[in-house]
Write a protein that binds this DNA or RNA. Structure first.
Lengths: 201, 201
DNA sequence: AGCTCGCCGTGACACCTGTCATCGAGCCAC
DNA sequence: GTGGCTCGATGACAGGTGTCACGGCGAGCT
């Protein structure tokens, strides 16, 4: 009997996944949480062996939760289950110590197998995503560029961003200009979108 | 036995919801589709009585799918099940003939009850969302404004948008300026975001 | 017929943005 | 220490953007 923890912020999806996995005779959902910062505690209390983690969660994202799990409970394995198959996410998830990466587009029958493989100590990674994350390479963005791009995601004017990070307007423009060059974009909004698509933010 | 159809573009979520609902002794999932434009055909072929529709789907969105269902198979009822509880979505869903509107944040135990109520001819609508959609009122945007805002969502420059819709640059700026005023924004990106949040796009 | 309203266009103006050249401070390698 | 690198900052300039005033067209209503 493999003991599972589910972490997803959408209660309906969480409950549905639990129903799906409980159908398998060798799997057992022993904990469910809706926030990333509750994962470690719930995993410890429930004695979960494999944790299924969504990426977008309040409190702590799934990748950071996987890192926390590796640090606090090294025996527990993590499987990222997310909507967005962004190359940078895969890379960061593996670096954070996750054992697997599955997108929510995969057929539901394959999920249980993925869980079993992860539990057995194998790596489970969507092959297309793995290839993409290899050719893309790691993020070329510097820390500031990444930070400013996240603020530029919603199209905020430069002045607003500059005020938020306590920088000069010209400096913000320069960093964003560099990011625009690195992403091959022509606008800071486009650059932000591209960076997000690749999982660089 | 209530016959159900599931429409959601994420196979994993679809399969999981099927597992959840099949646990109920009076519910039976008789069809699953991953595209909005396959809903009517699948509902006809399977004889589904209640259709659970996600909004974001390729081919046809869930609201338009509900409208198509009312037109083609008036006896079939629709229940919108979506991630985003946007006020405008609720209004449009009801106008399109949907019998219910549930967000994916709701506890999974309540889903089966919602399905039963819809099947019985009742309306099931998240009370908070219903209130919001009432105070917000309908979209104040004209057709062009709405169209141009969707193109402005990713922060495209005015010239690009103008070329895409075969309009003059000045005209595009004027329409977007009107939309900016109506949304209370100061930038076309912000206006687009606000309009999207309210379900006006 | 007048009237309103949505839609398309032009021109002008103030302001914002992206790019470039340039500078200084800190840090690491040789 | 010198050279090379990144980060932060400034200033200047061309081009993009939001706003306003104005005009014209067609559809629908009184």
């Amino acid at each position: 009997m493999i003991r599972l923890l589910l972490a997803d912020d959408q209660a309906l999806v969480r409950g549905a996944l639990a129903a799906l996995l409980d159908l398998e005779s060798d799997l057992e959902v022993v904990a469910q949480v809706g926030r990333g910062d509750e994962v470690v505690e719930a995993a410890r209390a429930s004695g979960a062996e494999v944790c299924l983690l969504d990426i977008e969660m309040p409190g702590l994202n799934g990748i950071d939760a996987a890192a926390a799990l590796r640090r606090e409970l090294p025996g527990t394995r993590s499987l990222i289950v997310t909507t967005f198959g962004r190359p940078g996410y895969v890379r960061r998830a593996i670096e954070a110590g996750a054992s697997g990466f599955v997108v929510k587009d995969t057929p539901s029958r394959q999920l249980a197998d993925a869980v079993r493989r992860v539990h057995a100590g194998l790596r489970v990674i969507d092959p297309d995503l793995a290839a993409e994350s290899l050719i893309d390479g790691p993020s070329p963005l510097t820390g500031r560029e990444r930070e400013l791009l996240t603020y530029a995601l919603d199209g905020s004017p430069v002045a607003t961003i500059a005020a938020r990070v306590h920088l000069s307007e010209g400096t913000v423009r320069n960093h964003l200009s560099a990011a625009i060059g690195k992403t091959g974009a022509t606008t800071r909004s486009e650059a932000a979108r591209i960076a997000q698509d690749r999982g660089w933010l």
